Simulated assay, not measured.
Amino acid sequence: MDLNQKVVVVTGAGRGLGRGIATYFAGKGARLACVDLSQEDLNATVAACEAAGGEARAYLANVAKEEDVEKLFSDVVADFGSLHGVVNNAGITRDGLLVKYKDGEIVSKMSLQQWQAVIDVNLTGVFLCGREAAAKMLELGVEEGVIVNISSLARQGSFGQSNYAAAKTGVVALAEVWAKELARYNIRTGAVAPGTINTDMLAAMKPEARERLIQAVPLRRLGEAEHVARSVAFIFETDYFTGRCIDMDGGLR
């Protein structure tokens, strides 16, 4: 797929990886529907996309809510007149040990609320956006469509992240299933699993903690949002790629 003038939805586009992906796609001439919960963050992303040479619009939506997602995709099609792709990037964390045991006693357990909050956004949100994107593409009769789910290195198992790891494993499985179901309509799917990426959260870490993370990466450096964006673009632009996950982790896996 040539990204020039293609309409692409990016969820979680307000900052971090989402902003990086949206801005990179804008530089390739894509028309971006940027989705998040913060209008201020979205405004900054839209400005960055426009500065990169692309068209962009902001949409407030909670991807965990079915009615929000249905309205989102209807609005995007009404505004842009088409839909060619979606990048399911929105995600949250609510870390905690499954059980914390100390001095012969259970100190704490991961709560159902911690579990459900992450599953709702990181897995159910991807399901809802993937479903609605596919439905709109079929209704519009687009010649080619692409759905990319952002996973994580955590899908290999990440200490203190039962909820997050389960969700990020799940979104890869969704990409694999959708590849088989949607290939007949020339809708391709894929996933990208980033490793340790240089985001605002890492920038705020103590220098010694940040250095430990860097030293754990075989390439001895952090990934950048653009590395992830290039991986997503590769899936969009490579018409024989579908149903697989790219691990963008500097060899950390």
Rank of each mutant, 00 (worst) to 15 (best):
F25R: 05
H227T: 05
K136R: 15
S152Y: 11
A209V: 11
V148L: 08
I106K: 11
G125Y: 14
W115Q: 07
R131T: 08
R230V: 02
A203P: 03
I119L: 14
V232A: 07
G160Q: 09
T11M: 07
Y24P: 04
A166W: 08
G145F: 00
A191H: 09
Q114I: 11
A135I: 15
Q114M: 09
N43C: 02
Y240L: 07
C129I: 00
E55L: 07
S152K: 10
L37V: 15
L213N: 04
D41Y: 13
M110K: 11
L37R: 15
A167C: 09
I197S: 03
N4C: 11
G96V: 03
V171F: 00
A51M: 11
S108W: 03
T189N: 05
E40H: 06
C34E: 05
G145N: 07
G141N: 13
I214W: 04
Q113F: 03
V9I: 09
G141H: 10
V99R: 10
C129F: 08
V86W: 00
V142T: 12
Y24I: 12
R220K: 15
A48V: 06
E226Q: 14
K109C: 13
R221K: 15
R15F: 12
A191N: 00
N163W: 04
V126W: 02
Q116P: 05
T189P: 11
G53Q: 13
A48F: 10
D75W: 00
D75N: 12
R220F: 09
G243D: 03
R212I: 01
G91C: 11
Q113V: 14
R230M: 06
S158E: 14
K6Y: 08
E66I: 01
I92C: 00
G53F: 11
V121M: 10
L3M: 09
A229D: 02
A26S: 15
I214T: 08
E176H: 13
V63E: 03
V232F: 03
A30R: 03
G85A: 06
R230K: 15
E40K: 13
R188T: 11
L252W: 07
N4H: 14
R31Y: 04
M248Q: 12
T242V: 05
D41F: 10
A229Y: 03
L182Q: 05
Q161D: 08
E66S: 09
R19M: 14
F234I: 00
V8S: 06
G251E: 10
S108A: 14
V7H: 10
R94V: 08
D95Y: 10
A167Y: 00
V142H: 05
L32R: 04
A78R: 10
N122G: 08
